[in-house]
Design a binder for these strands. Structure first.
Ligand SMILES: [Mn+2]
Ligand SMILES: [Mn+2]
Ligand SMILES: [Zn+2]
Ligand SMILES: [Zn+2]
Lengths: 140, 140
DNA sequence: TTGCTAGTTCGCACGACTTGTTGATTAGCA
DNA sequence: TGCTAATCAACAAGTCGTGCGAACTAGCAA
């Protein structure tokens, strides 16, 4: 994702108004590695801006997603998570606590075999599931 | 997944009753490579057994999943898909028509790097997205 | 064969998540 | 300053899946 300042410029260029709500969401996403849901982002936003609506958070995230500034990640466990890291990366997910971390896989593009003649791969998503160090500690 | 006959035996062994509904679902899943949703499986089931309920299809799929006889695959686009193929395999998905095919990746386990000290990987899921041969033909 | 009973089915309601709508109010920006 | 987009609140709707309770039935024992 671009920096909040760059996003402000981009939004203006594309005819979107730069509202305090949008700017707040830009800042909350900037450098955010928590892979938050719309709901959790809303909760943090509401602390700094009481009155901001969940609807607006969803709306702004959709806009950023459409612009390619954030990606949305569906891990199949409840709500979609949003990720300002749009580099080519993948995720590890702790099955116990749900924490999500970025990982980078370098033996790409992956080779595969199967009955898929002529299939053109555009993107590859890898999710590693398991147990994080903290949860391993607690259960020991 | 085991054969329908084997599943009948397993269900009896574990104290589950062998109902016509369950047997039908066993048969519909046997050798099924379509990666159906509960809904699509229900539609096919209802042709052969009018009156079967969607609730029962969900129920039986949950049981089979808990037994490890089917896996459920969340591609992040709508409903969960069910897969009687429980081998270690992955999937390609056509973004245009939604078709899902099995693929096998052999450079596993995958190496990755990131800030994930002590994370114990239990499973890896890979989804290749792109365009299938049929859809490429149609759009050409 | 009959009858019991625990397990099963079914239909409906509800829940979680996300988007749509409408109408009044606010506020960005040319 | 004025046009117009954006926000908000409130509510509805849509999708996917599950909780619940009444009615039913598979399996077993008498
Ligand atoms: Mn990420
Ligand atoms: Mn499969
Ligand atoms: Zn954990
Ligand atoms: Zn296709």
């Amino acid at each position: 994702m671009k920096t909040p300042e760059e996003l402000v410029a981009r939004f203006r260029e594309e005819g979107y108004k730069v509202t305090p709500q949008r700017q707040l969401i830009f800042r909350l996403l900037n450098g955010n590695t928590a892979h938050p849901t719309a709901e959790t982002l809303y909760e943090v936003a509401a602390e700094q801006m009481p009155g901001i609506s969940l609807r607006t958070v969803y709306q702004t995230l959709s806009e950023l997603s459409a612009m390619g500034e954030v990606q949305h990640i569906d891990l199949g466990s409840g709500a979609v998570r949003f990720d300002p890291n749009v580099d080519d990366h993948h995720h590890v997910v702790c099955s116990t606590c749900g924490v999500v971390h970025d990982v980078y896989v370098n033996q790409t593009p992956l080779q595969f075999e199967g009955d898929v003649e002529g299939f053109a791969v555009h993107s590859t998503r890898i999710v590693f599931s398991g147990e994080c160090a903290q949860c391993a500690h607690l259960s020991a």
